[in-house]
Write a protein that binds this DNA or RNA. Structure first.
Length: 398
RNA sequence: GGUGGGAUACCGAAGCGGCCAACCGGGGCGGACUGUAAAUCCGCUGGCUACGCCUACGGGGGUUCGAAUCCCUCUCCCACCA
């Protein structure tokens, strides 16, 4: 593949690639010298899952690897320890080093479902930020102005809205920029919300006698709620290490309108090929592609079958948790329906269970129960259903 | 340092002495519908040993027959001025 073809490929599915000419130069130089480009991607180790949102960038990173370049997965362990309050929320909970390390273990595993481990460099920014010291940080802060800081969209917005911005938040992008210095990054990529931070790296590097990195951003994947970008703190994510049925189910529950974006950002299937399918079929296909990607084709098929069985045909799943019931503990050999639901762990609170019963969401062996005071005479193998998809099977004991 | 504003349930946001377990929106849950766990429509949404009881409107104290609502104080936050 020649440089122009590579450039064309790399540019696909990006929202920004700046400056393109510089990337071309870098690619050319790399081709001549045989020295791979260093491509940086920072990840926040605060939550244990990588999501489909990450998968979008990771795919892009993989393309660089396939062209022979080096991927640098940068873990912001230092910056995270300091606590990054960036975004809407003011203060993020502090987490410990142990948790970060724990998370990282699973991150690596997950990331390598997409990346080539051979061409990946895993780094922690505490490596250079710790020794940097106050002096180093002060020096760093002298290289950027408050006015430029306020250019950042979410800063200016929050400033106007009178919501707080801590000084720490100004520091955060600077430290991130310094990471690029330490890593001698040729290019840094990220979600589109990272644009400002990435550009700051460009500005800072020359102060340390380095060539500026190229900046590449990809669109933010919309989460399962259909409105906000996918993120773990927002609870609207699909994790790439989730169980096959989970991934499949979550895909199926995405709003139909999201399909185009998901196909374009996460698959090699052209949208034209699937856009005329029935919306359900379109989603099923996507769901299977995703499960196959992170698990296997067999898992994908199984997930689909399970879905059809439980949700489409509303049948009882093959396996479900069992509840042990000891009749000796109950007078007259019967048990209050609310009590039973509670024991089966199908509900959060008993008030919730009452509502569920009143609203017709509880069934025993397919019979709808509507009386809150209903007394059940348990039998072995009785199937209890609470809500749309929570089941339990009764097992007599004693 | 000064002045003013604010803190309400999972989130956002009303209420400003009894009609408040607290309007409304989001979220969540349930039901109906559907070749989707999509969309749409309807309902529910503090807990409990449940026609009653308990806990709740930043923390503590007070006024009152009665407070989320009034007073005092503490904590935290925001803005403006310096």
């Amino acid at each position: 593949m020649n440089v122009d073809e590579a450039l064309h490929l790399l540019k696909q599915g990006t929202t920004e690639l700046l400056p393109e000419a510089t990337l071309k130069q870098k690619l050319e130089r790399s081709a001549q010298t045989g020295k791979p480009l260093r491509v940086k991607l920072g990840i926040d180790p605060s939550a244990p899952h990588l999501t489909l949102g990450h998968a979008v960038v990771l795919r892009k990173l993989r393309q660089f690897q396939d062209l022979g370049h080096t991927a640098i997965l940068l873990v912001g362990d230092f910056t995270r320890l300091v606590g990054d309050p960036s975004g809407e929320s003011s203060t993020r909970p502090l987490i410990t080093k142990e948790i970060i390390e724990e998370n990282m273990k699973t991150y690596q595993e997950q990331a390598f479902k997409i990346l080539d481990p051979e061409k990946t460099e895993l780094r922690y920014n505490s490596e250079w930020l710790n020794p940097l010291g106050v002096q180093g940080i002060i020096q760093l802060t002298s290289k950027y102005t408050v006015a430029r800081m306020l250019e950042r969209d979410d800063f200016s917005k929050r400033y106007e809205e009178n919501s707080p911005i801590s000084v720490l938040e100004f520091l955060y992008p600077l430290l991130q920029a310094y990471d690029s210095v330490a890593l001698e990054a040729d290019l840094e990529m990220g979600g589109h919300d990272q644009l400002f931070n990435l550009l700051m790296g460009r500005d800072i590097q020359p102060h340390y006698d380095q060539e500026s990195q190229v900046v590449l951003t990809v669109p933010l994947l919309i989460g399962t709620d259909g409105t906000k970008s996918m993120g773990q703190s927002k609870g609207n994510y699909i994790g790439i290490s989730e169980a096959p049925e989970q991934i499949f189910g979550k895909i199926m529950s995405l709003p139909d309108e999201l399909m185009q974006q998901y196909y374009e950002l996460l698959t090699n299937v052209p949208w034209d090929e699937v856009k005329d399918l029935h919306p359900k079929a379109c989603k099923v296909r996507l769901g299977k592609i995703m499960v196959s990607w992170f698990h296997s084709e067999a898992d994908a098929q199984a997930a689909e079958d399970n879905f059809e069985q439980v949700y489409a045909r509303k049948e009882v799943p093959d396996d479900m948790p069992e509840v042990g019931v000891n009749l000796a503990n109950f007078e007259g050999g019967s048990i209050w329906i609310i009590e039973l639901l509670d024991q089966a762990n199908l509900i959060g609170t008993r008030s919730e269970a009452r509502r569920l019963v009143q609203q017709g969401g509880v069934q025993i062996d397919g019979e709808k129960i509507t009386e809150v005071d209903f007394q059940v005479t348990p039998q072995n193998g009785m199937v209890l259903k609470a809500g749309k998809h929570k089941f339990a099977k009764i097992k007599l004991e004693g």
